[in-house]
């Protein structure tokens, strides 16, 4: 049974503004001169992107993340995925994780098909399991002859299709999807939603971050509204969307 639990997690990341912050020589000069030379690496600022978030998702639950740009949605997804380790708090995961996050992690010079094989291998698949996952993704993404072209020729919607198809073909228990899925057309999004529901019916979990009510309602039954790295509201998807929309209206953003 899949389970995803975050206990009071925090993520703080450094704000990099100058080259001297990233220089080993500047850091050495700074520490040897007690901070008088080299710009001082101690002046690096840290931003708390996620601050004290706790949640526990159990099998079959589908979560939708909403919040303004920079509110911490993507950081929260990457924390859930384990790509970022929390600077405080704990993360407990039961089940395998598949994700479609920003950047997609594709090699732009390889063809779509070669990328699919590479991703499958990176996830430890081989032999018939690899072939099965790739065949499944090929069928699902409907990219047809484009799969023989280098990925750098793809549109963002096509990249989203490929990544989503691969992430779900792995039969992961927990699906984490960033807003990149929004680049897909409506037909694909509906297909993606059916797929996510199907995964959740096999005792999986899905989490999607989006600015689109259509995507949020389609993918999720629970909503989480995050602002300034803190949870504002969590509950049934329609209630949370309503609260969030009301907030956006109150500050004049819609």
């Amino acid at each position: 049974m899949a389970s995803l639990e975050l206990r009071n997690v925090r993520a703080a990341y450094p704000v990099i503004v100058s080259a001297s912050q990233r220089s080993a020589f500047a850091a050495a000069a700074s520490s040897m001169s007690f901070g008088r030379l080299g710009g001082g690496s101690s002046t690096t600022q840290y931003v708390l992107a996620v601050n004290g978030v706790s949640l526990h998702l159990r099998h079959g639950q589908r979560l939708g993340l909403m919040g303004r740009n920079g509110s911490g949605k993507s950081t929260l997804l990457r924390l859930m995925a384990g790509i970022i380790q929390p600077t405080a708090g704990e993360r407990h995961v039961v089940g395998s994780v598949g994700c479609v996050l920003g950047g997609f992690g594709l090699d732009s010079d390889r063809t779509g098909l070669q990328n699919m094989k590479l991703i499958a291998r990176l996830h430890g698949l081989n032999g018939p399991a690899l072939k099965g996952a790739v065949d499944d993704a090929v069928e699902f993404c409907e990219l047809g002859p484009y799969l023989e072209l280098p990925v750098r020729t793809y549109s963002s919607g096509m990249l989203g299709r490929l990544s989503y198809a691969m992430a779900t073909a792995n039969q992961a228990d927990i699906m984490l999807i960033d807003e990149g899925i929004g680049a897909g057309d409506n037909k694909f999004i509906d297909k993606a939603v059916r797929r996510a529901k199907q995964i959740c019916s096999h005792s999986g979990i899905s989490v999607v971050a989006s600015h689109s009510d259509h995507i949020l309602r389609g993918f999720s039954d629970i909503g989480l509204w995050i602002d300034a790295g803190e949870v504002k509201s969590i509950g049934p998807i329609d209630d949370v969307i309503a609260a969030y929309t009301k907030f956006l209206q109150s500050i004049g953003e819609i």
């Binding site: 925090r10 703080a12 450094p14 704000v15 101690s42 002046t43 690096t44 600022q45 840290y46 931003v47 708390l48 992107a49 601050n51 920079g70 380790q85 929390p86 600077t87 405080a88 704990e90 300034a228 790295g229 803190e230």
Partner: peptide, 20 residues
């Protein structure tokens, strides 16, 4: 975004264990 601080956050012991 919120709460700027100038100190690198301390790392919890279980995180070290995870890395190993």
């Amino acid at each position: 975004m919120t709460a700027h601080s100038t100190r690198a956050p301390a790392v919890a012991a279980h995180t070290l264990q995870n890395s190993l």
